[in-house]
Amino acid sequence: MAGPATGFAERVRPNGTTQRRSARTESLIVRWLIIGVSLLFLFVFLVLPLVTVFVQAFSRGIGPYLGALTDPDAVSAIRLTLIVAAISVVLNLLFGLVAAWSIAKFEFPGKSLLITLIDLPFSVSPVISGLVFVLLFGAQGFFGAWLIEHDMKIIFALPGIVLATVLVTFPFVARELIPLMQEQGTQEEEAAISLGASGLQTFFRVTLPNVKWALLYGVLLCNARAMGEFGAVAVVSGHIRGETNTMPLHIEILYNEYQFMASFAVASLLALLALVTLIAKVVLERFAISEQ
């Protein structure tokens, strides 16, 4: 029953073909106009930019393309992005599970506040998400003096980038799981415990398998966002080349230095990530539906 809650069941189900004649009231022209407008829109805003990225990236051939990607600064940016994404995804996976579990299975004061707060990163500008950490951990920040005293670096270093990314991406996993877990209720867990299962056994044998597809789906979206995050990371990173530049920041720097080809070469990796995410998403949806 993973479908409805994750919201993709209705998208896949084709409409019945029997009603074709009677249900249609629009004239042929109107129909083609509507279809034409949406296709044009898709082409201009989605396909064209994507194609441009790859065209620009390969504008001087495969050699310079690979050269741009193997540039030490680029390699460092790619590595940093992968590290940041790996840490943020794992943290948000854990946080999302715990939050969804507590919201779906228990009653406690402040529950509705927590549900609202989980959505906060969606509604707040990423720049602000970055700025709060500067205000907290920057040299002039709340904990700044203490951090300097103990020789710890958070802002303009990996911890700051991870913190900002975690904040921006934390709704993804929780958002996928909460409605599904709420729909499933607690009866299966109660059944497991009454049959003698421990808390851990119940979690790993009953709760987790019941939400696995939604969980993977959330992780996928979380990862895509973590790798692509720009605003929040830009504020806390400090743009130190070869050290605190992630891929999106690296792309911007190259672009500002008029190195368009190199800039688009790195951008093509992010575009590729988007495509892979899209395909993986479709595959996951198929699995989730076939298991019902």
């Binding site: 029953m1 009866q187 299966e188 109660e190 059944a191 497991a192 009454s194 049959l195 003698g196 299962a197 421990s198 056994q201 044998r205 009953v206 398998p209 019941n210 298991e291």
Partner: peptide
Amino acid sequence: VGFVFQHYALFRHMTVFENIAFGLRV
């Protein structure tokens, strides 16, 4: 205690066999 739930609460991702075997496996 053997508890039978109103809406059965069978483990949806397990076969009938594994459902019945659950109490023995844990």
